[in-house]
Nucleic acid binder design. Structure first.
Length: 422
RNA sequence: GGAGGGAUGGCCGAGCGGCUUAAGGCGGCGGUCUUGAAAACCGCUGUGCGGAAACGCACCGGGGGUUCGAAUCCCUCUCCCUCCGCCA
């Protein structure tokens, strides 16, 4: 969330951010509620002050065994007034807090202004375009012969967009997870976490999925739990409510988790194969950093996500997202898209974001600065490193042979244990 | 699921209706001493809101209640600890 004072002092900037990101603008309501709140606080303070004075007086008289009855009557009246003002204040603050949780983060000044995803900027393209001496098939056609993904049985067991990976398909999934975790942790850079895949409401508010995206989450009503939509949720909330010492920063974490998404309202788009699923696997990277460092940390995080694709020898491009495509919590985001030569499309496999202090303020995660001894919010960053299903699409399509078999790239062989599928 | 015990500032920990502006310690910052450091000693040191400031108000896990007055009493929720039951 944004700081109330910041919103009040930078109204036009916040309004512009809401407009540029195509997010709802609650600035006027917030201004009104903040005014009201200020009036109630002043009233409350005045009444409490009087009441505190009279109560002290009563205490002194009572110790001397004097008559306190007349003062008690007076105090009772003030106490009741104070309670009624406090009730109004509570209601006002509840409304204000709810709106503050629904205001989007401000984009960084470097983020291109845009109307839709068409205005995202291609920063660079990496990797060679692979030459085929035959017409490359897409992953769905390849699977017809290989039978490593079972869409029908997935639909039977859970529903559409819940495929099963079988045999070498399952092996491919877990070897990719192993490979990615190994790359991120081998030099000790990221500390691996194996978190719960279920989160409570406070956790979901902390990273910003709630209240805005609540309908996109799988919700377990009996316990008010949510299935995590990304590993970012447990990893970032690792530090929720904590005051860190500056020496502990930066904190680098990584985790494998499944990700659960209802994808409400997205039917009709990317419906074939592994493009869009309700449950998919992902290795996530998260950084908790000093606010002065977050934009250089963002570049470094992007490089770490890219390292996976370089090692696998895949062709990819980096997009800088325009304002319209930036997520609710993000101030700046790079997407990484893999080239799928059979599907002939760029597929998003990673989204690397700096949320600045937006999540930290929701979570109340601060550090004590060595420079001024005061508390400051940390900055939080997250990036996929990377998502498995679309990585599988690109691998199958890039490394397919004329006979329909798939060659496993060198970097993955020790993890996969074989050179070929099919 | 049942029975007890707990949650207090960055950390530890006392307080159990008004003399608390939350004791004391640790840590941190400043000083004295010292060639320097350590030790010792002295001082300062929570967060938020309002205010130019003085100062005022709120905050002792969350919420509600009793009372003129609540960290303190009552109810409730969450989490942690000990034990019992059940189950991978």
């Amino acid at each position: 969330m944004l700081d109330l004072k910041f919103i009040l002092n930078n109204r036009d900037l916040v309004r512009k951010a809401c407009a540029d990101k195509h997010e709802p603008d609650y600035v006027d309501e917030i201004i009104d509620l903040a005014k009201l709140r200020k009036i109630y606080v002043a009233e409350r303070d005045e009444l409490r002050k009087k009441l505190n004075e009279i109560s002290d007086e009563i205490g002194k008289i009572a110790r001397k065994k004097g008559n306190i009855a007349p003062l008690k009557t007076k105090a009772k009246g003030i106490s009741e007034q104070a309670k009624s003002v406090e009730e109004e204040l509570r209601l006002t603050e509840a409304k204000l807090d709810d709106l503050l949780l629904r205001i989007t983060n401000i984009p960084h000044e470097s983020v291109p202004i845009g109307k839709s995803e068409a205005d995202n900027v291609v920063v660079r393209i990496e990797g060679e375009s692979k030459k085929f001496d035959f017409e490359p098939k897409d992953h769905i056609e390849l699977n017809e012969k290989l039978q490593i993904i079972d869409f029908e049985r997935g639909a039977k067991i859970a529903g559409s967009f819940f495929p099963l990976f079988v045999g070498d398909g399952a092996r491919l999934v877990h070897s990719l997870i192993q490979f990615m975790l190994h790359q991120h942790t081998e030099n000790g850079k990221y500390r691996e976490i194996f978190p719960p895949f279920i989160a409570n409401r406070k956790t979901m508010i902390g990273t910003g999925q709630i209240p805005k995206l609540e309908d996109d989450m799988y919700h377990i009503e009996v316990d008010d739990f949510f299935l995590i939509p990304t590993g970012e949720v447990p990893l970032v909330n690792f530090v929720r409510g904590e005051t860190l010492s500056e020496d502990k920063l930066p904190i680098y974490m990584c985790a494998y988790t499944p990700c659960f998404r209802r994808e409400a309202g997205s039917y009709g788009k990317d419906t074939k194969g592994l493009m869009r699923l309700h449950q998919f696997n992902k290795v996530e990277l998260v950084k908790i950093v000093h606010p002065d460092k977050s934009y250089e940390e963002l570049e470094d995080l992007l490089a770490d996500a890219e390292s996976i694709l370089k090692l696998l020898g895949l062709r990819y491009r980096i997009l800088e997202l325009c304002t319209a495509d930036l997520t609710f919590a993000s101030a700046k985001t790079y997407d990484i898209e893999l080239w799928a030569p059979g599907t002939k499309k760029w597929l998003e496999v990673s989204s690397v974001s700096n949320t600045t202090d937006f999540q930290a303020r929701r979570m109340n995660t601060r550090f004590r600065s060595n420079a001024d001894g005061k508390l400051h919010y940390v900055h939080t960053l997250n990036g996929s490193g990377t998502a498995v299903p679309r990585l599988i699409i690109a691998l199958m399509e890039t490394y397919q042979n004329k006979d329909g078999t798939i060659t496993i790239p060198d970097a993955l062989r020790d993890f996969f244990g074989k050179e070929k599928i099919g």
